[in-house]
Design a protein around this nucleic acid. Sequence first.
DNA 1: TAGATTTACGTCCTACGTAAGAATC
DNA 2: GATTCTTACGTAGGACGTAAATCTA
Lengths: 185, 185
Amino acid sequence: MPHDYGFNIRDLRRVIAVAEHRSLRRAALALEVDQGTLTRSIQALEHALRIPLFERMRTGARLTAAGVAFTKIAASVLEGMDEAMLHLRLRHNGVVGRLRLGVQVSFATGVVADLLERYQSVCPDVDFQIIDGTRERLLRDVLASRLDAVIVIAGEGWPGRAIPLGRKECWQLSRGITPSRRGWR
Amino acid sequence: MPHDYGFNIRDLRRVIAVAEHRSLRRAALALEVDQGTLTRSIQALEHALRIPLFERMRTGARLTAAGVAFTKIAASVLEGMDEAMLHLRLRHNGVVGRLRLGVQVSFATGVVADLLERYQSVCPDVDFQIIDGTRERLLRDVLASRLDAVIVIAGEGWPGRAIPLGRKECWQLSRGITPSRRGWR
DNA sequence: TAGATTTACGTCCTACGTAAGAATC
DNA sequence: GATTCTTACGTAGGACGTAAATCTA
């Protein structure tokens, strides 16, 4: 269990920026930090690693062999992290996954249709399948887990898991009922 | 190209420690930091992510669903980083890889033998193959890249790439001529 | 001199430990 | 009251920007 490496995510991005721009000055410009700050960051990193990463030249800075290796490491770490973080956030917000939604035919126009369209545009990463049908058919399908949720005219039964479709509750639908939440698959 | 996430490597290790110990207190003990420090770290991270990672209980702390996901991310990032960093350092020190070394038979004992044995014990991660043979045979093989280096009696030719075998140069052999350096494969 | 990196220095912000506070059984 | 997490507070060290210094064609 190795301890801390003495550098942080920011340093990784800075190394990559310098490598890409082949210049501390241009990288500093791109990163919107002072050139001296960047110099110190890179120096501190090289010192922490005890490995020189860049060869300083009159025309700029070029990666050493070790620098190339480290840059690859940094890039792969950052790439994995970026993707994972994005996915984490999306999942937490419930905007990725699959949502099979049954809609009673009589709702296929008007407010509900607008809402569904809006949801799709807000959450493009949700595989959003709308199935229309009769009330009974939809209720049967959602019971059998062939649908994740349905929008139907209210009736008897389903006291706890049904939500009345007022304006406020519509919003709750699009934020609370998501493919990744407990009870919905 | 996302910006900084507002946390660093240390934070990842701390989250994992808390998750493993299921307690801020025990994790702080294991990490040898103050409990308050750990609290602040985790809080800051949760705030940066805008996602709660732990559910605080009287008996300790337990991962939330999002916390489980994040912990997996953190573990995989750290694991990849640890391995890569180890490999980077080994490579930079020239102690991993393959070194095919030809040794003239008349050197197969004495100082050279001791040196080779020492090198092997210092760099156990080098796949170190010693091939003995006549001077001409070895020179032919190293020319044809079947060997990475040879130790032979000096003669004509090879002015730039040959190193006299004084005591100092012997050390240069074990530190400078490595499988990963330019010109040697 | 032009174009590049490095260093000096003062400031500010962050992270830390100590220690006290709150919540829950 | 014991155990656990949280918050206040003062300090020390790190990171930053400005600006001057250095180096090389």
